[in-house]
Each structure stands twice: as C-alpha cells, then as structure tokens.
Nucleic acid binder design. Structure first.
Length: 107
DNA sequence: AAACTGACTAATA
DNA sequence: CTATTAGCCAGTT
C-alpha cells in the first residue's frame, strides 16, 4: 500500500469533519478504509505539511482527550481552537464524545 | 539488518 | 479506576 496515498485518504476524511465536531484517530482510519491503523493517522498528522489547510485540531484520541506531543504548545493551541468552535472540555481536559463526536448523521 | 520510537486503541488483568 | 500487551506501520539509528 502506497503510504502517500494512504495519508492523502486520511487528510480527505479529516477535511470533512464539520465545525463543532471531533473524530478519533481510529474513526479516521476506519472511514479512510484502513481499520485498525489509528496510529498511522497520528503519523500522517505529524507529517502534515504546513501549507495544507485541514482541520487537524478536530482529531482527538479515543478517550476524548487531546493526545500528547513532543511540543506541548500545540496541545494548548488545539484546545483553544476547539473551544473557539464551541466544544467544551471538562475539568479533566476531556471532551464528551457522545455529544461532540462526528458521525455521518449529524454533520 | 535489528532495534527503537511514535498525535493510537481495544482487550485484559 | 490504572497498567500492561499486542496489533499497527514507517522513518531513524
């Protein structure tokens, strides 16, 4: 399987996440046609070109939290962007997936 | 070539 | 509830 093509598929799916909703890494992998490859979605985002404009901030982990990075500053930026979109974080920094998770019915 | 290392996750203990 | 484990794949040592 061609890796660039795979990453491209991930980016396509991520681009469809509507404002005010979030998706998990595993969900993106599944929708892109690569079930079980959640980790690769993380790699794809890590390798995301600066000039590509997709709503990367709407991808979070299965616990409903923002995943850790090498540089924590991006975690703060991501949280702020999501809050601006109207998403609420509880005191543990967790999002209510039942309420905010994207599905094909609610977009 | 072998080992290591990640923006992950579901299952199990 | 937290911790560990086995899948997952590709780039770097």
């Amino acid at each position: 399987m061609n890796q660039n093509l795979k990453y491209q598929r991930f980016y396509e799916i991520i681009s469809r996440i509507p404002t005010g909703k979030v998706a998990t890494y595993g969900q993106i992998a599944l929708l892109a046609g690569f079930p079980g490859q959640a980790r690769q979605v993380g790699y794809a985002l890590n390798a995301l070109p600066d000039d590509m404009e997709i709503p990367w901030q709407r991808v979070i982990n299965a616990k409903g939290k923002i995943s850790s990075r090498a540089n924590p500053i991006f975690e703060q930026i991501q949280r702020q962007m999501l809050e601006t979109e109207g998403i609420h974080f509880d005191q543990n920094g967790q999002i209510d997936l039942k309420k905010y998770q994207w599905n094909l019915e609610n977009d």
